[in-house]
Design a protein around this nucleic acid. Structure first.
Lengths: 381, 381
DNA sequence: CTGAAAGCGCTTACAG
DNA sequence: CTGAAAGCGCTTACAG
């Protein structure tokens, strides 16, 4: 079933059928209606391959991520695909599974598929892997690759604001002893978050205590181990910020196991705002990395890249603090010994008290957002 | 840069270049090496659109899911895409967002893209939406659509085994009062799970107590509310099985809030084995729906569907119990009043006790798997 | 083992 | 407003 058969049946040329299909305006309404009826009748579906070959574009975008099982990505994919669908663009996505060597192969596959553009949303990008795409002048967009900022379109993440908000929030609750669970320093994103955290402390005139910074891997288990280290300290922090939500989950577990009540005895703040942040107990206060915003900027950048080769300034995205239940005012008896804390371990809170706490939190959050709303709007432009 | 330029530069015909590209054996090694060198030199990348048009296949599969933000899907997508990549097949995926009307549109888009086959992994499928695909004889595979079992390829899920394992496990721990948190009865998958649970109780000669079955929505909040209802009962269950892991998370939260210790005072079993099942506190014992197996069967079915139109029997997948920390032997003081339980609320367990418990669990799990391994292997054929 | 040529199903500049 | 025809970049039956 091809356009010829439709043309024959409708007693017009294939050119006319094609024009009807593409809503080209220069067709008499009567002819057009007639052709459409025949198309319907024959269940004709145009062949996109043929069309693409002719037109030289595929309306296909490539999306490369690290790992779809990482809960960070689904929302990003979802948003990206949604924007694409609106434009009649389909998305092919592949993942590197954190293996830099696989990136080159991913790019290659997408280039062979003649995608119109590629978004590479992995945290590490080796420039060499991009060659396959640049050789054929394919528009690209990267995620937060500072070193490639000038040569490629990029969506940048400005960490400092989010950590600033987190530290200010803790400060307002009376915390001055604030610890950090850091990721491996060879990972750039982990390194940047750590720097942003330290900077925020300094801006709040708080001490950066090296003993309170525990370095570990980015997984739940890492967070757990790091928190156990922090809890074992003689003089320990009353609040802990983590490099990502998974580590925060581990930190909560470690606290539970040690009989340390969160948020009563210890406040915890995560980073990412994964879907699980809402499911932990207590629900996690965290710095939200706005994934759909990232997807949005990335997609727009690519559309722009198709129109023009002019490189415009990189859009910037600002993580923001989301206040839930894992942070509370610092306990009266600060700096107590570990034994003292342990014996106080008690997780049952009276429902009424909890309810009151929740209400207070809710209003705090609203105020906070309002306070920063203006800034954010400006920043998002 | 096209095959002609390569041919000219290599001083051969395009046919020869094409043969080299497709590793067709009938090319002299010397010619082949020469052509490959030129290809390399010119950075030639073949145009897949042209190839597809000529060959009449795209090596493109469509994958339709409900919602990528549902943590059930990423692992399935991952496995499916991995298998496809091995075969040089790319995957386009779209999602219906649970809207049955969008399914038809999804199918249509994929048909226009000339995909070679479509996997529809949504829980609800309206047969009418499939017409666009069946009209062009496109191979399809569905997920557990019993009513369409005879007309379409399908990957079936046999719930009963998993629930049987769950109930047997609880039984072995001494539980006889087992409750269930059910999903909306208009959703087929929820309905089936409930039936499978009741059947398992009967097979274990346990009472199906209607009071202990709480119906609610499939989200965390639903599980929380339902668990609160169950906890409020005078004579309440000592163990609760839920329709999915999100509800189990809610159930755990409700227990925490009520000061009921899991697993000491109450055992909880989920369903799905989402990534979060490992992150809850305590880690969730749950019935694993084997997503990568589903992806595997679906993919194989499609390959088969391309080769032959003969419909073979549907592959069946068996959920299996994964034992973690949310189940424990029934407490000595069973059937105590709510007040009695509340006053006992205490979540701090001594690390050593926990460790012993973990070890015991681990060995239980291994035994369990061994016991069923034979059966499963047969079933998977 | 290699080449000349037809043709996959479209779109679009050109002509009328 | 409509049609005849070229051509997008490949693959493959056919001929040698």
């Amino acid at each position: 079933m091809d356009i010829q058969q439709v043309a024959k049946r409708a007693k017009v040329s294939t050119a006319t059928v094609s024009r009807v299909l593409n809503r080209s305006s220069n067709v008499r309404e009567k002819t057009s209606a007639h052709v459409r009826r025949i198309i319907e009748e024959l269940n004709y579906v145009p062949n996109t391959n043929a069309r693409n070959l002719r037109v030289g574009r595929t309306r296909l975008f490539g999306l490369i991520i690290s790992d779809i099982n990482n809960p960070f990505f689904p929302e990003l994919i979802d948003a990206f695909e949604g924007l694409a669908a609106e434009q009649g663009i389909e998305v092919i996505f592949t993942h590197t599974n954190y293996d830099p060597r696989r990136l080159q192969n991913c790019v290659r596959r997408l280039v062979e598929r003649n995608v119109d553009a590629i978004a590479i949303m992995t945290s590490e990008v080796d420039e060499q892997a991009l060659q396959e795409a640049t050789k054929v002048q394919l528009p690209l967009v990267l995620l937060n690759q500072r070193s490639l900022q000038d040569k490629y379109r990029n969506v940048m993440v400005e960490y400092s604001r989010g950590f600033q908000e987190a530290v200010e929030h803790l400060r307002a609750l009376g915390h001055t002893a604030i610890g950090f669970i850091a990721g491996p320093s060879h990972l750039r994103s982990a390194q940047r978050r750590r720097e942003a955290f330290c900077l925020a402390l300094k801006r709040c005139s708080l001490e950066v205590c090296p003993e309170w910074i525990a370095t570990t891997d980015l997984r739940v288990e890492g967070g757990k181990i790091a928190m156990q280290q922090l809890l074992a300290l003689g003089h320990r922090p009353t609040a802990v910020v983590t490099t990502n939500d998974l580590m925060a989950v581990g930190a909560l577990q470690a606290a539970h196991l040690a009989g340390v009540s969160v948020p009563k005895d210890l406040s915890v703040i995560g980073f990412d705002d994964l879907p699980i942040a809402d499911m932990t107990f207590p629900a996690l206060t965290t710095i939200r990395l706005p994934r759909s915003e990232i997807a949005h900027h990335a997609f727009i950048s690519l559309l722009e890249g198709i129109r023009t080769t002019k490189v415009t300034p990189c859009p910037v995205v600002y993580p923001r603090l989301i206040i839930r239940q894992s942070t509370a005012p610092v306990a009266r008896t600060t700096g107590g010994s570990r034994e003292a804390k342990l014996s106080k371990g008690n997780f049952s809170r009276h429902p009424k008290t909890l309810f009151r706490t929740l209400k207070r939190r809710a209003s705090t959050q609203v105020e906070f957002h309002e306070r920063h709303a203006g800034l954010t709007r400006v920043a998002q432009k």
